[in-house]
């Protein structure tokens, strides 16, 4: 039944679009097979840069996010400055649009003209993305850490484990398990946001497509670039679904305290 209704909908949509008066023009300027084929190698080469940002950025986001989350959960007056700093960082970068951070970091830093400040759009773009995403991910981690029942910490401490050992061996593994679905969802978002480094002039998939469009006056390269990003995101999205479903099942069977 679901299959039939889906098919029916697809057919109707197809007919509506292809019968529309503007369709022939749209078809040649957005969906030209020849242009798509010609532009694919260049866009794919650009996508490699996005992938590099994704891998380097993804790892840095996890590391920075975890450190900030831990800083925010530290108790005691000795850690107050660190806690405050971490809170301020999260508030600032979770509220600011990524594109603004990209402009500020990407154009602001080089403008300082300081010795040793990198000017490569790859480095600056990655830095901006990490600043914003680590703030999000820090909150995900913090929620995970706080979801671990205090009695777990009490049990760990009662065995003589130090605060650090309790965190590493008892709290964080349970927190990580809880937040994996949320992290994967953030990763899907990151996969397409790495395309924004094009605003800094990096020749990535989006910028390559832009150049090709300018050259051919045909918009097909945008469609190609868009579809490549979708292809990148689909496997992660499926993994995220599977992990969420598993976590839900486990929770329903009362696995987590």
């Amino acid at each position: 039944m679901a299959l039939v209704s889906t098919l029916l909908f697809a057919v109707v949509a197809y007919l509506v679009v292809t019968r529309s008066p503007g369709w022939p023009r749209v078809q040649t300027t957005f969906f030209s097979p020849q242009v798509a084929l010609d532009s694919l190698p260049e866009i794919a080469r650009g996508l490699l840069l996005n992938l590099r940002v994704l891998v380097v950025g993804g790892v840095l986001v996890l590391v920075v996010g975890l450190l900030v989350a831990i800083a925010r959960t530290l108790r005691g007056p000795a850690f107050a400055p660190l806690r405050l700093l971490a809170t301020g960082y999260v508030d600032l970068f979770r509220g600011m649009p990524l594109i603004i951070v990209l402009y500020l970091v990407g154009f602001g830093f080089p403008a300082l003209g300081l010795q040793g400040v990198p000017t490569s759009p790859f480095v600056l773009g990655t830095a901006a993305i990490v600043l914003v995403y680590a703030a999000y991910v820090a909150e995900v981690f913090r929620a995970g850490i706080e979801s671990v029942h205090p009695s777990q910490r009490a049990a760990a401490r009662s065995l003589g484990l130090t605060h650090r050992q309790s965190m590493r061996i008892v709290v964080l593994p349970q927190a990580l398990r809880t937040v994996t679905p949320a992290l994967l969802n953030d990763f899907v978002a990151l996969q397409k946001d790495v395309g924004l480094i094009s605003v800094l002039g990096a020749i990535d998939a989006v910028r390559s497509a832009q150049i090709l469009v300018g050259r051919s006056f045909n918009f097909t390269p945008y469609v190609v670039a868009g579809l490549l990003f979708v292809l990148l995101a689909v496997p992660t999205a499926r993994i995220a679904d599977a992990v969420s479903a598993r976590a839900r099942r486990r929770q329903q069977s009362g696995h987590l305290l």
């Binding site: 065995l159 593994p173 349970q174 696995h255």
Partner: peptide
């Protein structure tokens, strides 16, 4: 010291 709690508090992972 050895401590045992009302709610067991075993480490589930």
């Amino acid at each position: 010291l050895g401590v045992v709690f009302q709610a067991y508090n075993l480490f589930p992972h």
